[in-house]
């Protein structure tokens, strides 16, 4: 490093569009696609597990095993099959988000009070309409808590994809920064990655507030209930339920 300043603003100004902007866009894409894929699989899977509860223990074990498989190792194992396409990063990260999202969706659906469900049945709601108009909205806060953890974790993990050469802000850190012993790109990469994570997190909080207006003002109460629930269900050690409530803590 020597007598070189920690941040060279002129480098940032000169490289704002090309390496920095390009890498940021790659990063956004590499993070958002797995989150969306995870969501698209986790919600139906969670609904199925909540409906046929005998399915859940085996799905839960499967999800726990996925959680234990390090994404970094998966990046390298997939490389010969998927090559330097984005799938090499997208598949492991999708599996990882799945491991966080499924238990949260199921937990959220389990929380639907019996009397609410019975009221919906008494009002003549068909099972599908009950699911969409009553049960899923009630499950939303817990599901979004899981989504927030999954999103922040994925955005920070995408950086590792650069070790395999897949782009993203990690590439800025590794190629422009580390290989040239030049701290500015590393700091830019870290700052942008953290900002992106916070931005997405904030958007999800906002989304939850807009989608569940009835929870406003009683968020603390909701959190207490979910903490109590998790405590009661701790026998099966869910990695995601705890992370879910952890994130809920930040609200």
């Amino acid at each position: 490093m020597g007598d070189q300043p920690l941040i060279r603003w002129d480098w940032i100004a000169r490289n704002w569009d090309d390496p920095v902007g390009t890498r940021l866009l790659e990063h956004i894409q590499l993070a958002l696609v797995p989150i969306l894929i995870g969501l698209l699989i986790a919600v139906p899977l969670g609904v199925v597990c909540a409906r046929w509860r005998w399915l859940y223990p085996s799905v839960f074990t499967g999800v726990n095993i996925l959680y234990a498989v390090p994404s970094i190792a998966l990046f390298f194992l997939l490389l010969p099959y998927t090559g330097f396409t984005q799938w090499t990063a997208i598949i492991p990260l999708s599996l990882y988000t799945l491991a966080i999202l499924v238990p949260n969706v199921v937990d959220g659906l389990y929380q639907v009070p019996q009397h609410v469900r019975q009221a919906a049945i008494a009002m003549g709601f068909s099972p599908l309409r009950r699911l969409i108009q009553v049960e899923l909205p009630i499950a939303l806060p817990v599901a979004i808590a899981g989504l927030r953890v999954a999103a922040v974790a994925t955005i920070s993990m995408v950086s590792v994809a650069s070790l395999v050469g897949l782009g993203g802000l990690g590439q800025l850190i590794l190629t422009d920064g580390f290989r040239r012993q030049f701290p500015t790109p590393i700091i830019v990469g870290i700052v942008l990655s953290v900002l992106l994570a916070f931005l997405v997190d904030g958007l999800l909080v906002l989304m939850q507030r807009l989608l569940t207006p009835w929870t406003r003002g009683s968020e603390r109460a909701a959190r207490r209930t979910s903490a109590a629930r998790r405590e009661a269900g701790a026998g099966t050690t869910a990695p995601a339920t705890d992370t879910g409530s952890r994130r809920a803590e930040a609200t």
Binding site: V152, I173, F178, G189, I190, V194
Partner: peptide, 14 residues
């Protein structure tokens, strides 16, 4: 949690 581990590692190494 939001910090990219690889960035932290490489910054400290430098």
């Amino acid at each position: 949690r939001a910090l990219p581990t690889i960035g932290v590692l490489m910054l400290v190494v430098i």
